[in-house]
Amino acid sequence: MDSVTTGPLGPKHKATSRPSGPPSPEKPLAFSNAADDELRRIVEKYPDAGMRLLPTLHVAQREFGWISEEVKHLVAHRLAIPVAHLESVVSFYTMFHQRPVGRLDVQVCMSLPCALRGSGETWAAIANALGIAGGEITADGLFSICKVECLAQCDRAPVVQVNDEDHLDVSADRVKSFLDSLRNQTGDGKAGA
């Protein structure tokens, strides 16, 4: 969770460490030095140019939070591929966000094994506690929620993935403490919803 900022964030503070709006024209989007190093390693690791696209998009998303039009152009330019090809790939894979997400993107598995053990109730409890619907972001920019398919941990259902991390056995009655612990991890949560 390297992108999470600390410090108080109220509804007025919309800024997040992941730039989510269109960047200002005078400061063109660029990869950080660390990301640049990573992209160089990708070139060494995948000698075939085609194979670099998905890994590069993963880096770009971690860097910028989501794959905006500007990010698409940046990546296409970097890999010297047509934007149209990049578009076809980005739109195919669900992990590439085509709109901004919260700093904590809460993904609830809705596939049958999780559903049989109450993921529907878990989803409703999370949406209710945060006051947002799927695809929306809380006013403080902290949370977004979405439904996802099987995360391959069906023995610990319901399963919720938050950014890169799996959370297991998240039954509806645990949702309040689950969200509180997420807030506390980020350092900007008051105890209680």
């Binding site: 995948y46 194979m51 998905l54 890994p55 998009l57 894979y93 669900t94 992990m95 590439f96």
Partner: peptide, 8 residues
Amino acid sequence: TVYRGAGA
């Protein structure tokens, strides 16, 4: 070489 998918 390890190669990561992206959700499909």
